[in-house]
Amino acid sequence: MATVTSTKTAAKPGVGPGWPKPPGQNGSNGNGRSRRFRGRRKFSKDTYRIVVWILLAAILMMFVALASSYIVLSGNPEWQPVRMPRAFMFSTGLILASSVTMTAARRQLEQGLSKKYQGWLLLTLLLGFAFLACQLKGWKQLVSAGVFISGNPHSSFYFLFTGAHGIHLLGGLTALGFLAARSGRVLSGEASEKRSAAADAVALYWHFMDGLWVCLFLLLWLWK
């Protein structure tokens, strides 16, 4: 069906004047910006970066909404502040460290050191899981202090912020897992470009999750 229509198009250039231009051997299929049309259709490095920024804008808006709710409700006379469990302090340290290892991994990739890149990635992954474990430990500490999700908003926000952030972090961990699974291979050309673009995008997401947690942590800890 599609082939039929295509020959029709190609055979009938008079639909609109100047249209369609016969495709040259190097014709591209219409993707990407004009400067990329010279050669074969090239992988667009921007795609990953753009989509992660857009995704982060959406995630940021949701957490801004939740944080605004927190600030509004903290002004309520019925607000009962809850003490910060120690586990969350540890987890903050862990996630900060994971950002450092992620940056190290990217440095190694830039220099083309696949093995070292893989090592740093796995370390980042490990720190990510340790962070989540620590968050769960924090929940346990909250529960043993008699703080549950039900009840006064400050206690609910502890669970809500950690839970919502944790779910988004799981997405980051999945992406890290994909990177790690492909990190051992030595690549060149477009495949290598693609890999470093993906690593950049995942790093961006990861650093954002780190910064987001620090903000939520400071909010829960100091704004009460």
Binding site: A57, M61, I149, L160, A164
Partner: peptide, 25 residues
């Protein structure tokens, strides 16, 4: 849509938690 739907999603989560998890947002 990108900037407004996440806010509704956040609000919806709070509302659902009020109903099923006993929170008081």
């Amino acid at each position: 849509a990108l900037l407004s739907f996440p806010v509704l999603l956040g609000g919806g989560i709070l509302l659902l938690l009020d109903r099923v998890a006993g929170t008081s947002f």
